[in-house]
Design a protein around this nucleic acid. Structure first.
Lengths: 209, 209, 209, 209
DNA sequence: GATGAATGAGTATTCATTCAT
DNA sequence: TATGAATGAATACTCATTCAT
């Protein structure tokens, strides 16, 4: 029993170890130019070992998206349950959660675009796809919940809460991607935080009733 | 001279033919899984011919980004010059310009993320990078111009106009990407237009003074 | 037209060039230990080129079996048509045809055992499998024809001609394999011809009415 | 001593357990596509354990050939010693012995062809090769003994008895392989027994003086 | 200019084998 | 002895790119 559990935990740790390495390599070189050997080296493991934990390269990267979504969900879960917080406070916490996602995994958003290729999807196990879908929906629902509450309290304009959540998520991810692009193309510095702050402010002002 | 010109025009047409094919293939299979042969077949040309017009695969795809930026710029150019239009009208035209970009090239935004890899940049000619940077800045400046005008007229909140332009661009591109993701993962339908409309509305409300 | 034809012929020559090389390498090292690179080197081509003519390693080797069957069939075809030859004469020609097969391709019989794995069959195109089946049946039928004729002339014992053909084929291929085995294990010399002669003699005596 | 012996017996049982599993896996997938892990799973052991009993994969498979030869030899041993049996009776017993080999291990004959690769031989221990050679010769000699006896009794045609034994063995093994091939390629049923009966009959008739 | 056959470096993936527990 | 996670060398196969025609 104890042994079973410990093995399970060790296995999970290895998976994390690989994912952390994958994230680092991918951030530095991009998906295509990153080789499984690069990742293995970074993880201080042999290439073969990677395949004991992930079916193939596509699945390894898709797992990074899942990891990010799991992280986001944990942060969002509390929001829905708490009845004492004001809507404004909740928006601030949501904002912070998104910042934290970025700190946790600044580039994983890019991974999500590999999911945009049906060729890539073929290489993923059905369970993984399902998990990503489920968590994706759950996160959206959590965000939509806040907007729904604000609308009911006549604080926000009356619009479809899910569409509002989509907008906010798009604003956030678009911003991350855009700033990363600028950083590389312009060789510029990292202006993400202030610009994101402005974007969140505009959004907040825009949804006031 | 006339011959020279005609040749030039024919050459440009071939380039466009290839880019259109590349866009189609890339949309269907994603960047990684698309091969130069796929594109050649789609363009009804031989693989070798592609290399008469583009130095390599990365440059072909970067050219798609450039093409999109060129298209966007043509639409935005008029905005800055026109002194008679109200700021509100200009925002509407800007919105329409972005919709047009999407219709012109719904997936090219994704291409831009290949620019996020410094490894990819190595494969691009300096001129191409410069052109992309220049057009990118020019587009941003055109957008920022509108916000600047609005601020000066005390219609908009006082914020850095460039940051506002960044936000709008991030909102737009994030939305496109997010809806494309949902389309493929959820197999769902295309809700882009209504959701984008809401996003633009919120943004507009949010920047009012 | 002429161009089309010439290309077709050149393509066929390349295929043969590769198959000849494959046969040599395979004979020397066995299927498993032969690499595609070995074969490419032997054929004085690059590994990639092999894949322009054969889908994969299994298909390259299956093609060797097909080649052998084609060779056998050409030799056997004449037998059926010729009405003037005595059955005895035909048996001698058949014997010679089998000797020729051995000279043409002493080890390809071994290849046929790769067809014995359903895993291998998965890697073959349906057309190739069909061609092999068809030629295989055709060869057997040609052999059975001789036995049928002999039976009708009351020269041979009354048995199922196809079963007799199976026996003869098994005798021949078993002999080739067995002598090859002995050659390698015992490091001995090649006694195939005299032993095969005896086997054919016994078989001939055994089927006399 | 008793302990020593019991250990020895247990060890032998494990070896048999592995060989039985190996035979099953090999029959299903073919030599090349069978992995050591497949065999370990089938034997309900771990991959590492296999290496406590067999030096490597090639040796495991060569051991199957040895096992078959041992089985055959036990059946043949009695034949030589028994002075009271007629030659005809002995031929029948020999025939039955071969049938039994097939029942015992229908596909192991194929294994023998892996011995045809000198590359494979390198991986075998000298003792194993010697044992196989010795048993192989012994079996042949036992068969040849019957033919020798028949010749001396003027029952059979005067030919080299060893060559006759080679022929019979080739006929038998060729038949097994050929029927296995047909079974898989044609998806047909198992006609081995009747066809083999015919082959043995023809052979018997063919060697009569 | 256009072709497309050939290239060969590059890489994901496999799997026999080892070894710490 | 038995395990099975880890290894890493081996290799089938791909595909961007070239170049003789």
């Amino acid at each position: 029993m104890g042994i079973q559990e410990r093995k399970e935990r060790e296995r999970e740790q290895r998976r994390q170890q690989i994912m952390v390495a994958a994230l680092r390599v991918f951030s530095a070189k991009g998906f295509n130019k990153s080789t499984m050997e690069d990742i293995a080296t970074e993880a201080e493991l042999s290439p073969g070992t990677l395949y004991l934990y992930f079916r193939n390269k596509d699945e390894l990267f898709a797992s990074l998206s899942l990891r990010m979504l799991q992280f986001l969900n944990i942060r969002l879960e509390k929001l829905g349950k708490d009845r004492n917080l004001s809507v404004k406070k909740k928006y601030q916490i949501l904002k912070q959660a998104l910042y934290d996602v970025y700190d946790f995994d600044p580039l994983v958003l890019i991974n999500m675009f590999h999911l945009q290729s049906s060729e890539t999807l073929k290489n993923l196990s059905d369970e993984l796809i399902e998990e990503i879908k489920a968590l994706s929906r759950k996160s959206l629902r959590a965000m939509a919940g806040i907007f729904d509450e604000g609308i009911k309290q006549k604080l926000f304009i009356e619009r479809h809460p899910t569409a509002m959540a989509d907008s906010l998520w798009a604003l956030f991810s678009g911003m991350v991607l855009w700033e990363e692009s600028k950083k590389i193309i312009d060789g510029g510095k990292d202006y993400l935080k202030p610009t994101l702050d402005l974007a969140f402010e505009i959004f907040w002002r825009g949804i006031q009733a």
